[in-house]
Design a protein around this nucleic acid. Structure first.
Length: 232
DNA sequence: TCATTAATTTTCT
DNA sequence: AGAAAATTAATGA
């Protein structure tokens, strides 16, 4: 068995660890470093913030509130990545909290400009980080428009397998500790639906998910499932 | 075809 | 043991 069926998918498949900007590491003395314990709020909705956040270690989650109290998960900011709420205007509807114990270095606009002056490559790295996010959410907008939830879940699994699945004789192993809930948040489908979809895949012997691994036994079948209409 | 709610069971820490 | 995650069933859009 070879990997000829594999096809590289550009950009991140799951909204975390977007393009790292670890060049900021050597300018941390300019900013203000702070520790956030797991579960604490880094930025509450509506609160003014005009700093650039560099996550040195740990992980943050960014979400956006809705009128009806719902809260849409957007993406994670992992180690060596960055986040910005409002560089330009003061109001926003984002909320950021620490998923793990996290150390963040905050840079003011002035400090960022100072770094830009000294190190132009940082500008490109930050642009790359933002553009990667933009592209991800453009693809997301497309999928939400044109694909059914079952297709979005199946395609995520298929792409994950192509991207990082290890072929081991007769099946693929994906090392991933995504929960069903997380897959639901990423794909915009209800976690109960995700559960049902996994049951269908497992019953057909296509795939099996454990806590930290996903075993793909029939990659081609999984690919075909993307376009099938599922009966629940 | 799916979201939603609620009620249980299973798995993690 | 308590929290989080997963499952199952029922209802409705």
């Amino acid at each position: 068995m070879d990997d000829s069926i594999k096809r590289q998918i550009p950009g991140p498949l799951i909204p975390e660890s977007f393009y790292p900007v670890d060049r900021l590491e050597k300018y941390m003395h300019l900013g203000r470093t702070r520790m956030f314990p797991k579960g604490s709020i880094v930025l509450s909705q509506g609160k003014e913030s005009n700093a650039l956040m560099y996550v040195q270690s740990g992980c943050l989650a960014v979400s956006m509130g809705a009128d009806d109290g719902h809260n849409k998960f957007l993406f994670h900011i992992g180690a060596r990545s960055i986040g910005m709420a409002t560089f330009l205007s003061e109001y926003h509807e984002l909320q950021i909290y620490a998923v793990k114990n996290t150390t963040i270095c905050f840079f003011t606009v002035e400090q960022v400009l100072e770094i830009f002056h000294e190190d132009e490559q940082v500008i490109l790295d930050i642009l790359q980080n933002i553009l990667t996010k933009v592209y991800y959410f453009m693809a997301q907008a497309r999928d939400l428009n044109f694909c059914r939830p079952s297709s979005r879940v199946f395609r995520l699994l298929y792409n994950l397998c192509i991207r990082e699945g290890k072929y081991t004789g007769d099946h693929y192993v994906i090392h991933s500790n995504l929960t069903q809930k997380a897959i639901g948040e990423i794909t915009g489908t209800h976690y109960v639906t995700v559960c049902k979809l996994f049951n269908i895949l497992e019953k057909q012997g296509i795939l099996k998910k454990t806590k930290d691994k996903i075993y793909v036994y029939e990659l081609e079948k999984l690919k075909n499932m993307i376009n099938e209409v599922i009966e629940y």
